[in-house]
Design a protein around this nucleic acid. Structure first.
Lengths: 139, 139
DNA sequence: GTGATTGCAAATCTTTTGCACTAAA
DNA sequence: TTTAGTGCAAAAGATTTGCAATCAC
């Protein structure tokens, strides 16, 4: 058994409680991988790999379920830049992204470095949920 | 046989010639479906369906190939908004998009209605290829 | 106990690929 | 001819689903 931090469970536990998600072993473990540390962008496959590498028994299906539940609860933000692969961003604050087309890597752009002035009106009967700016670079 | 326009082939033919793509029956037919008319957003599956409905014998694989060739030639622009599905936009001029999350529909926002001021610098050693703005609405 | 959650494998869906066949030049 | 382009069916990914087994409460 590995001690990961002084409060191995509480941060993840609190987040799950706040989201109304039952704190199962799998959800706790995934929450720790996702939120103990710096902000990051992960795919389901990646996170599943990390879980296995940390000796956490989770199925890929559960990783998908969990990522979507976390996203629904506002703990993650889903980013689509690439046909056929979703990334999940642990940074849910207002910001945008660089996308490196060659490597497929994503990088945050702090919100204050991009200004979208003159956002058009939402079409009648709709609400704007989010404005995504993706700066595609050839790195 | 249906007469589609006064110059049924020439517009599509010219575009293919200009792109250096051999004007095969399939490419001509797909180009006509795509470019004879208003700007539009199509998925491969959709375009394939339209082709079949117009009695054009094309395989889905060829539709994919053709969409990518047209994109490579600058005749189309690929848009990714939705995990696991690509749209191709016949409007290649500077503009952005509304994405209706419920219906999955895309709609152009004319370039002059969105202004991205203060685009951040491209990371060292990279070039900005494009800046995509996607306004997600809940329609 | 009881209902939510999980694992597994199969199913689904989109897109790509390999290769023999066909057609454009 | 000669080479690019096409069709088909199979493969490859990514994601979802169905259902019995398991776990949190």
């Amino acid at each position: 058994m590995t001690i990961i931090s002084h409060r191995p469970f509480s941060q993840a536990l609190d987040r799950l409680r706040a989201a109304g998600l039952r704190p199962t072993r799998q959800r706790l473990a995934l929450a720790k991988l996702l939120f103990d540390g710096l902000d990051r962008h992960v795919s389901a496959e990646q996170l599943h790999g990390e879980a296995l590498a940390s000796n956490i028994r989770v199925s890929l299906a559960t990783v998908y379920n969990t990522l979507h539940q976390f996203t629904g609860a506002g703990m993650l933000r889903e980013i689509v830049v690439d046909a056929g692969r979703s990334y999940f961003d642990t940074n849910t604050s207002d910001h945008h992204h660089f996308f490196y087309e060659k490597s497929g890597r994503l990088e945050d752009i702090p919100g204050h470095l991009v200004a979208v002035s003159r956002v058009p009106q939402a079409p009648e009967g709709t609400l704007i949920r989010r404005v995504d700016v993706i700066v595609r670079v050839d790195g």
